[in-house]
Simulated scan of single mutants.
Amino acid sequence: MADDEGMPDFEVPVGLFQDLEDLKAEVARLNAQVKGLTDATDDDQGEAFADDGTAAGDEADGGEEEWQFPPFILLLDSPQYDDELRALIEWVEGVLVPGYLAEPSADARWCPMWFEHPVAVARLHALWLAWQELTDPATCGYTGPSVWHRDHLDPCMRELRPSTGPFAGCTKSEHQVEHRMPGIVPSAWNRADS
C-alpha cells in the first residue's frame, strides 16, 4: 500500500475525536463572534449610507435578521426592562432555584424577593446570559456547561449567598422590604402588592 507509506501505524483514541469536535465547535463560535463584531463595525461605518433610503435589514438578500447581543438588564428602560426581568424570573424560578439552590441558611442566604435587589438582578442576569450561550452545543461544544458552572455559577453564588452578601438583611425585620425565608420561591406575577 503505497498510500499508507510514511503514516504511523497506531489507533487514534476516542477522546481525541471528542476533543477535535470541541475544537471545531469553538472555532465555529469564534468565527461567528468575529463576523458579528466585524459586521457591527461595518454597520457603524456605513451609517452615512442609511440616509439614502437603504435600511440595514434590506441589505441581506435572504432577508435574514442579524442576531444582536442582548443588552445588560440595568441599561434597559421600561418596558424592555420589565420584559427582560420577566424572562429572567422564569429562568431563575424554573432552572436555578430548583436545580442549584439548596435550603437557605445563615451561610447560604437566598431571598425570595431577589428581583427587588438590583445587585442580585445584575448578577443573575449576567449568569443567565452566560447560561444561554454556554448551554448551546452549536456555539460552545460539549464543554460549555462545565465552563458555565466553573466560571459563572460558582462565582455568582459566592457573591450573592454569603452572610455579608446582598441578602444579608433579608431575614431581619428591619430590612426595608418585608422578606421571609423561602419555602417555595413565589412568582413575581402572582405577588400581592402591599
Rank of each mutant, 00 (worst) to 15 (best):
M1I: 07
D4Y: 10
E5Q: 03
G6R: 01
M7E: 10
M7N: 05
E11V: 09
E11A: 13
E11G: 03
L16Q: 08
L16K: 02
Q18M: 07
Q18V: 05
Q18W: 05
E21F: 05
L23K: 09
K24G: 04
V27M: 02
V27T: 03
A28P: 00
A28S: 08
L30S: 08
V34H: 07
L37M: 11
T38E: 03
D39G: 01
D42Y: 09
D43C: 00
Q45W: 08
E47K: 12
A48V: 14
F49M: 09
F49D: 11
D51W: 11
D51T: 15
D52M: 10
D52W: 06
T54E: 04
A55L: 09
E59M: 02
E59L: 10
D61L: 14
G62M: 11
G62R: 05
G63C: 04
W67V: 09
W67C: 00
F69A: 12
P70C: 03
P71D: 12
P71F: 14
L74T: 15
L76W: 14
Y81K: 13
D82I: 03
D82T: 15
D83K: 15
D83I: 15
E84Y: 08
E84D: 11
E84S: 15
E84Q: 14
R86P: 01
L88E: 07
I89K: 13
I89A: 15
I89Q: 13
W91G: 05
W91M: 07
V92C: 03
E93N: 13
G94T: 08
L96M: 12
A102N: 12
P104R: 12
P104A: 14
S105K: 04
S105V: 08
A108V: 13
R109G: 03
R109I: 01
R109Q: 15
W110C: 06
P112E: 07
W114R: 00
F115V: 02
E116P: 07
V119H: 03
L124Y: 04
L124P: 02
L124A: 09
H125Y: 06
A126W: 06
A126R: 09
A126S: 08
L127F: 08
A130N: 04
W131V: 00
T135G: 01
T135R: 09
D136C: 10
D136K: 00
P137L: 03
P137F: 06
A138K: 09
A138H: 05
T139W: 05
G141S: 05
Y142M: 11
Y142K: 15
T143F: 04
G144V: 06
W148T: 01
W148S: 03
R150F: 08
H152G: 00
P155H: 07
P155N: 06
C156V: 15
C156D: 12
R158W: 05
R158Q: 12
E159I: 13
L160Q: 03
P162A: 00
P162L: 09
S163W: 01
T164S: 11
T164W: 08
G165Q: 01
P166H: 01
C170T: 05
C170S: 02
T171G: 14
S173E: 13
E174F: 06
E174D: 13
E174I: 15
H175V: 09
V177I: 10
E178R: 14
R180A: 05
M181D: 12
G183C: 06
I184T: 10
V185F: 02
P186K: 01
N190T: 12
A192W: 09
A192H: 05
D193Q: 13
D193V: 11
D193E: 13
